[in-house]
Design a protein around this nucleic acid. Sequence first.
DNA 1: ATAGTTATTGATAATGATTTTCATTACCGA
DNA 2: TCGGTAATGAAAATCATTATCAATAACTAT
Lengths: 138, 138
Amino acid sequence: MSAETWLAQLHENGYRITAARRAVVEMVAKSTHALTPLEVYDLGRKKYRALGLVTVYRTLEKLEELHLIQRVHQPMGCQAFISMGQGHQHLLLCQNCGQAEYFEGDDLEALTKSISKKTGYQINEHWLQLFGLCANCR
Amino acid sequence: MSAETWLAQLHENGYRITAARRAVVEMVAKSTHALTPLEVYDLGRKKYRALGLVTVYRTLEKLEELHLIQRVHQPMGCQAFISMGQGHQHLLLCQNCGQAEYFEGDDLEALTKSISKKTGYQINEHWLQLFGLCANCR
DNA sequence: ATAGTTATTGATAATGATTTTCATTACCGA
DNA sequence: TCGGTAATGAAAATCATTATCAATAACTAT
Ligand SMILES: [Mn+2]
Ligand SMILES: [Mn+2]
Ligand SMILES: [Zn+2]
Ligand SMILES: [Zn+2]
């Protein structure tokens, strides 16, 4: 999804479109890496000098609410965000450069059914994430 | 693994066995929930009044180094630890009460191979976690 | 068992990231 | 264009985690 789409989504949900939000949205929407608030701040200030770190936090919060971005958990930390994937997708992350890609096609039906039977749990959700080295880094 | 085994492991690795460490190890080893440092602190003080929060942090750090515990990532936070599973196991967590269980038997061979071919990534590792409601909470 | 070495401890202070406060600004519907 | 009010950024407050440090206690070598 493009930055314009995100801004439209914000607008549709009653949020105003401001220069600060434009800067944040633009940077996060185009990034192929998960970005921390501070990274978004640094990038965003290239587009909009006056951008405040607090506004970055607040904007990321709203984008997450609207499911336009998601938090990415990594061994080095869990405060990074990336554009949300389409439909049922999971992330594949490069352990060297941080490059992120979405993939689909995981099928855990059989597994969850069997575990459900064995444990008595009602299984509602799963987190799956792959780590490796991208074509450039391997 | 029991608390005694963990203490033996600590000792084998040159660490001293102290009352503070006993309290931390005992509580974490027997818990079926992922515990935050503060939770470990509160529980640990029931065994050893003088326990300091700083020591809890330091002990958890060492237990993680020795692969006796692992960090658990959850929607509500990622600073919680639980006893490590045996071999290739993943966690199943109750969304209501936090009860945790290990399961095994996931097979991502075919998936990772296909994704590897498609993306050019060399896939080294995967994170998998299931969420649901335990038998008591469903 | 004792003594000496030194890892460990907990209180305290420092740090760093995130949140809150608040007066000012500027978006946008009327 | 104007007015109501959401949004902003600077500054202060908060919160979790880490570093400091003098006192203590675990273990090793006698
Ligand atoms: Mn996490
Ligand atoms: Mn697995
Ligand atoms: Zn890479
Ligand atoms: Zn439960």
